[in-house]
């Protein structure tokens, strides 16, 4: 699939997600994960790394796409924004793992969207272990709102915190999670 055929649909999902539509946001992340998987598998294959490492990068990029989604300019195309983030995560990953072959060719944004791949492998990331490294406040907020699916007001009552404190804890928790994922020791 190419950008031209997919961009309008992905962009519509992104805009709906930015307005708070859960289903659109999940659907966007699912569709993007297939493209990202194919892209990272291809790039990592060149340096002899397997699908599990690629899946790490897919998940890392999904977290980045989600926690930095306010940096998307609604008036612009979506796919170049996604490509820039995917490429940045790849370059950062290669630098972190000190790969010998560090140049990532600059392609058009189509590079990410050239193929999709839905063959799922588990990543090397362990969500339970990652969550255990957050502060209790953040962990609890993410558990209630993100994993148990409570509304913010329900979670606020359960945790004995204000609603805005819950929102802030979820937000900070996801940021902290992306940092933990980035700084984990290479597997």
């Amino acid at each position: 699939m190419t950008i031209s055929s997919d961009e309008p649909e992905l962009r519509a999902l992104m805009l709906a997600g930015l307005d708070g539509d859960e289903a659109s946001h999940k659907s966007l992340l699912t569709k993007l994960s297939a493209y990202l998987r194919a892209y990272f598998k291809g790039q990592l294959a060149r340096i002899g790394r397997g699908p599990s490492d690629a899946e790490d990068l897919v998940q890392e990029t999904l977290i980045a796409l989600h926690t930095r989604r306010h940096t998307y300019d609604r008036s612009q195309l979506l796919t170049p924004w996604v490509y820039a983030i995917a490429r940045y995560r790849l370059v950062d990953y290669l630098r972190r793992t000190k790969s010998a072959n560090m140049d990532v060719p600059v392609e058009a944004a189509e590079g990410v969207f050239a193929n999709d791949d839905v063959s799922i492998v588990d990543s090397g990331l362990d969500l339970t272990k990652l969550l255990a490294q957050l502060t209790p406040k953040m962990r609890q907020a993410i558990q209630f709102v993100k994993l148990d699916g409570m509304s913010v007001s329900e979670a606020a009552v359960r945790a004995g915190m204000s609603q805005s404190a819950i929102k802030v804890s979820v937000h900070r928790g996801l940021r902290a999670l992306s940092l933990l994922v980035r700084e984990r020791s290479p597997s």
Partner: peptide, 10 residues
């Protein structure tokens, strides 16, 4: 992960 990220978004 997608479920976690996509649940109860602001």
């Amino acid at each position: 992960l997608i479920n976690l990220l996509g649940t109860n978004i602001e």
